[in-house]
Amino acid sequence: MSREELEEASGHLRRAAETAEGETREKLAEQSQRFADAASRESGPDHGWLDRHTHVVRELGEELDEEGREHVDDAVERINAYRETVPGV
């Protein structure tokens, strides 16, 4: 399974964090790091992990300006592309 999608999602979330302020910025930076960590692990995240974190990312995106939301949308697209490669559900 290619982890490139998770790395790209992390990058989009990092750029989204740069457009945010305060707690939203911190939470997006944390999500960016979580996806970067997931991309570097030997075994990738499962559907449940991906679903939980995608939900968090989407909620944070609602607090952003247009540029930030675009980065969040791009991150979600990359996460979904990775998710299609995960066996199971």
Rank of each mutant, 00 (worst) to 15 (best):
residue 8 E to N: 12
residue 3 R to S: 07
residue 67 E to C: 01
residue 53 H to M: 01
residue 57 V to Q: 01
residue 85 T to V: 01
residue 8 E to T: 11
residue 67 E to R: 14
residue 44 G to T: 08
residue 78 R to S: 11
residue 55 H to C: 00
residue 35 F to Y: 14
residue 6 L to Q: 10
residue 28 L to C: 07
residue 32 S to I: 05
residue 34 R to A: 08
residue 80 N to Q: 15
residue 50 L to Q: 04
residue 55 H to T: 05
residue 7 E to N: 12
residue 34 R to C: 00
residue 54 T to S: 13
residue 6 L to K: 14
residue 38 A to W: 03
residue 75 A to P: 14
residue 55 H to D: 00
residue 33 Q to G: 07
residue 14 R to F: 06
residue 21 E to R: 12
residue 80 N to F: 06
residue 26 E to T: 13
residue 61 G to A: 00
residue 44 G to N: 10
residue 23 E to G: 02
residue 44 G to M: 04
residue 88 G to P: 10
residue 48 G to I: 07
residue 25 R to I: 01
residue 17 A to I: 01
residue 79 I to Q: 04
residue 36 A to M: 12
residue 15 R to F: 02
residue 39 A to V: 09
residue 75 A to R: 10
residue 78 R to V: 00
residue 38 A to K: 00
residue 10 S to M: 06
residue 12 H to I: 01
residue 47 H to M: 07
residue 54 T to V: 06
residue 42 E to R: 13
residue 43 S to F: 04
residue 87 P to V: 12
residue 18 E to L: 07
residue 19 T to G: 03
residue 52 R to D: 11
residue 84 E to I: 04
residue 30 E to I: 02
residue 82 Y to A: 08
residue 15 R to D: 14
residue 41 R to N: 04
residue 79 I to K: 03
residue 23 E to A: 05
residue 4 E to V: 03
residue 56 V to D: 02
residue 45 P to H: 09
residue 69 R to E: 14
residue 20 A to Y: 10
residue 59 E to L: 09
residue 27 K to L: 12
residue 7 E to K: 15
residue 15 R to G: 01
residue 59 E to F: 05
residue 23 E to D: 12
residue 30 E to S: 10
residue 43 S to V: 12
residue 74 D to A: 15
residue 28 L to S: 07
residue 9 A to C: 05
residue 79 I to D: 01
residue 56 V to A: 07
residue 20 A to Q: 11
residue 23 E to C: 00
residue 53 H to D: 07
residue 83 R to Y: 02
residue 37 D to Y: 05
residue 35 F to R: 00
residue 46 D to Q: 11
residue 24 T to P: 07
residue 73 D to E: 15
residue 75 A to M: 12
residue 51 D to S: 13
residue 53 H to A: 01
residue 55 H to A: 06
residue 74 D to G: 11
residue 46 D to K: 14
residue 62 E to Q: 15
residue 86 V to N: 00
residue 40 S to H: 05
residue 8 E to P: 03
residue 52 R to H: 06
residue 82 Y to F: 15
residue 61 G to R: 03
residue 29 A to I: 02
residue 5 E to I: 04
residue 75 A to H: 12
residue 59 E to G: 07
residue 32 S to R: 08
residue 32 S to Y: 08
residue 50 L to A: 05
residue 69 R to Y: 09
residue 11 G to L: 08
residue 54 T to R: 02
residue 24 T to Y: 11
residue 72 V to S: 11
residue 20 A to E: 07
residue 82 Y to D: 03
residue 42 E to K: 10
residue 51 D to A: 14
residue 23 E to T: 00
residue 48 G to K: 15
residue 25 R to M: 06
residue 10 S to T: 11
residue 2 S to A: 11
residue 28 L to H: 13
residue 86 V to R: 00
residue 49 W to H: 14
residue 45 P to S: 07
